[in-house]
């Protein structure tokens, strides 16, 4: 193997390790800013009366985001419907 290839491999390895370093240094389960999630965990069962906090966040605290998700699905179906529609008799394909 050429020395250039070895050097490239070493640089890539060092870059990947430096990118992965922050995730290795973080302690799992204790984030620095936990105001929002501890609020949801502490008050989700009182406010939304829901046991599954994830569903509580998705459909109550972040309901607007879920509306966007549903609209994305609707738009996807719209696109498929347009792509697979039945052509008219005299309609021709146009490639631009």
């Amino acid at each position: 193997m050429k020395s250039k290839e070895i050097l490239t491999a070493i640089i890539i390895a060092v870059l990947a390790a430096s990118l992965l370093l922050p995730s290795a240094l973080m302690v799992f389960g204790s984030p620095q800013n936990d105001g929002m999630d501890s609020y949801m965990i502490d008050n989700g069962q009182d406010i939304a009366a829901v046991n599954n906090i994830v569903t509580g966040v998705v459909f109550d605290f972040r309901g607007f985001d879920t509306l966007g998700e549903a609209l994305v699905l609707f738009t996807a179906v719209l696109g498929v419907t347009l792509m697979f529609r039945r052509m008219k008799e005299d309609e021709e394909y146009e490639y631009e």
Binding site: Q45, D46, A48, A49, V50, N51, T55, G56, F59, D60
Partner: peptide, 17 residues
């Protein structure tokens, strides 16, 4: 209403969800 903490769960809860 749902009690705080682990519980078996009530189907008739959670409002509009």
């Amino acid at each position: 209403s749902v009690a705080f903490g682990a519980n078996p769960g009530i189907l008739n809860s959670a409002g509009t969800i």
